[in-house]
Amino acid sequence: MLDGRYDFLDGIVLTDSCDHIRRLYDLFRVTRDIPFLHFMSVPHKITEYSIGLYREDLGTFRESVEKAFGVKITDASLRNAIEVYNETRNLLQRIYDLRKSDTPPLTGAETLDIVLASTIMPREQYNDLLRQLIEELHGRQGITDYKARLMVAGSGGCDDPDYYRVIEGLGGLVVTDALCFGARYFWKPVELTDDPLSDLATAYQNRPACAKMADQVVERIDFIKKMAKDFNVDGVVYHRLRYCDLWAGQLLLLRDQLNKSDMPMLELEREYTLGATGQLRTRLQAFLESLGG
């Protein structure tokens, strides 16, 4: 932002997902003249009251977008968008389902490429391509030469497919995840009723939660355990960004819970940019060996 690399943007929307992001909002306001800068408060627990509060904030967000860009966001257009995005969710789930196979047709890195594309492409076009891809994947020869089926779970900074390529270059195959740029992004659809803003508030509050949701400790771990079981993984790679306290705190319970489930776990700390790959490879190799790979 400071060197003008993102000057092509018309606006930025941030949330109080963590201390880092909320202070970024402060620093953007003070240091840059951003035409549209919106900050959304997000509750830290899931109750009917918190969902109501979040629904109000989504309404405020809608109004500020309408005002800033001279557009009208009707309930009908919201419903339409939700349906399109639900279709994405459905298609991505189908792609994930294909990875449950003993011979998955996609690597983890390829899958992350696909999910990341959803965050920047026009959705209708993206959905068309996903449908084509699913057809092609049915005819694709599955991957057999892997040493272990892995799940990746943990904190942000999970938008770098090269990170997966390091893991998969050593013989691990990432078959599923519990990441914000992965399954947690699309795992649950938005159930449509007569109030699309309430539907969005309900769905976004109830999706597999980031560690900022204080009352979702058990649910978060249960989701990781269920995904590990459903995708028949041999081990979990739990990676977290250094200084991400929220996901750091989960370790106390997660390690304990996965131990009780006889699920091996490798804990990795990393920076946002991929670095120290030698050290990373050494730890992954040792983990894969311990899994018998």
Binding site: D19, P43, H44, L53, A214, V217, V218, D245, L246, L253
Partner: peptide, 24 residues
């Protein structure tokens, strides 16, 4: 974040009731 990261996890670890006062 540090409080949010630790209080609920400690509560769960020791199996104790827990309440978060959500502050917008």
């Amino acid at each position: 974040d540090s409080n949010v990261a630790t209080f609920p996890v400690i509560a769960q670890y020791f199996d104790k009731p827990y309440f978060c006062i959500d502050v917008p």
